[in-house]
Write a protein that binds this DNA or RNA. Structure first.
Lengths: 321, 321
DNA sequence: TAGATACATGAATAAATATTCATGTATACT
DNA sequence: AGTATACATGAATATTTATTCATGTATCTA
């Protein structure tokens, strides 16, 4: 004969109450109201048809039945937590959840991920994208790539990519509109914009740093993320303001051309971050290692391209630093 | 850090699946559909973010994580069941609920109960009285004493008391009215009647069995139960038709006198009955044991009294048998 | 005695659970 | 190749859970 068992939340309330001998204090521990605890204990007592606590005035006394059942509940909750901690903190965990901005995912990580999968087929990588900062204690995220200044407390932080910012367009676009000769000429071309996102480089800033005074930016399409604006450039719709990591593959393939030998270093970089406690886990450490290597390779390529530009009258613009 | 735990039903599905290595067979055991089990296992896997079973074709293989967590779940379900069985079936249950007719409670059980309480102070006896038959599955009754022929299905049945039926009155009553010499003389005395209750012995039947033709019974008070009619006899109000168990103590104390050496054996007896499944419970088994002993002692006393009567021209009247 | 403390209760409500049904997908098996 | 078997998936729906709020009742305490 199988007995009906109460819900997990009620068992938690029972265990907490047995320690505090007070519904109110148990409720505080569980971040619920005293009333909720009272209901839950009563619900269990109704299900099982015996009392777990004698109520003597304002005092709770554990009944004989309570004394028998509570250790069973306590053991279970303890053993579950212990076992899940073990599983979670171990190589038996086979997935990595990474959070990063959409454009970097599309343009940089995803094209490279096949290599990681080949090296570590037992590890699955779950990508989630957001422009928001990640909160490791509340979000279901193991590791993140963030754009910023690298100043985040209590996290393992490694520089991943420093970026260069420059205009790009497709070869066909240039054929149709003829090549601009000076940066100021861009005012006559349709520009591709990314929706305002505070730390992302913007056209206005680029012009300013190029020493070009502008009253009004030329018309052009606006996109919700960088990857999309890059794609529009590939599709001959205009000139996008690109960042090196986003266009590495497209430049190499010839889908996009870098305009001028003018670029700026982004004041913000991509950083690889995760909680310290996860660094020692194999699945995380191998992933970080791999990512940092890939990034180093990319960075070398960017630097080479930019040095080649420097040999041809390139001009370096430093943002604000 | 406390992990979220899945609902109880899902844990049951996990445990069953781990034994059967088949959602379909686990579902059969749990009386739900395969689909429900599939959903539940997947729900757990989503909550915990690791697989519990590898699906290889139509085969389920328990993962490493599964192998770690399943014993925890199995222990919990097993321990809960065991503990709840213990609480439900055991000495921790400290009360016995007995149902019997009012008169036997008052005249036979209650006067004796002190002895049981002395022997088993930890067991409390809850008495309820009714003239109706008891239904063990719906009434809050553990054990009952029933008057009848002993033919009840599916219950543990033990004969408790066979009764003798005879007239009694108080000594003072006799002094006042002078002693009747023949049974027929009783027609001239106020008789004490019990309200009609099918299986209870009645005055009309006694006279008939004594071979006395009556047209009309003499006047007399009517009482709702036997104990009350006996009490009226003790209070010198008339002659009551008594049953041995009801008047054992009163005869011994001299409060009542048995009239004539004429008695009949009741066609019905008192039986001790309870559901089979309760017999093995200590609180029930000790109570039954004690009751049967007390009854045996009483029965011996009745038999002795009746055999003494036999030595003095007693006449045995058999009711209908 | 008044006020504080603590469990109890009922109504209300949102969210989660617990399925089923219908069907898809993949593998065994003949 | 056709059929059977078994897990997977999504939509739908009923039930249960998980509270909170407002208030009641009883006991402590000063």
């Amino acid at each position: 004969m199988t007995h009906r068992l109460p819900p997990i939340a009620a068992l938690r309330a029972l265990e907490a109450t047995s320690r505090h001998l007070s519904f109110t204090r148990a409720a505080e521990e569980l971040f619920i109201s005293q009333s909720a605890v009272s209901h839950q204990i009563r619900h269990i007592e109704d299900i099982w048809d015996f009392k777990l606590f004698e109520r003597q005035g304002r005092q709770l006394i554990i009944t004989k039945e309570g004394q028998m059942i509570i250790p069973v509940v306590r053991d279970f909750l303890g053993n579950m937590n212990r076992t899940l901690n073990e599983i979670t903190n171990q190589e038996s965990r086979t997935s990595i959840r990474i959070s990063l901005v959409q454009s970097l995912a599309v343009k940089w990580l995803v094209p490279r991920l096949g290599k990681f999968n080949d090296m570590y087929p037992e590890i699955s990588v779950w990508i989630s994208t957001t422009d928001e900062l990640v909160n490791f204690s509340t979000d279901e995220v193991d590791i993140a790539i963030r754009l910023g200044d690298g100043n985040w407390p209590d996290l393992q932080i490694d520089t991943l990519l420093r970026e260069y910012v420059f205009p790009v367009c497709s070869p066909s676009f240039l054929k149709r509109f003829s090549a601009p000769e000076h940066p100021a000429d861009l005012m006559r071309y349709p520009l591709l914009y990314r929706h305002s996102f505070d730390i992302c480089p913007r056209w206005r800033d680029w012009f300013k740093d190029a020493g070009i005074a502008i009253k009004k930016l030329p018309r052009g399409s606006h996109f919700p993320d960088t990857a999309m604006s890059i794609q529009a450039a590939i599709d001959h719709q205009g000139i996008a303001l690109a960042r090196s990591a986003h266009v590495e593959k497209d430049l190499a393939s010839g889908r996009l051309i870098k305009l001028f030998d003018i670029y700026s270093e982004s004041p913000v970089s991509y950083f690889l971050i995760c909680p310290h406690k996860l660094v020692t886990q194999r699945r995380i450490s191998v992933f970080r290692e791999w990512l940092l290597e890939e990034a180093a390779t990319s960075q070398k390529a960017f630097d080479r391209v930019m040095r080649a530009s420097s040999g041809h009258q390139s001009k370096i613009m430093a943002y604000g630093i």
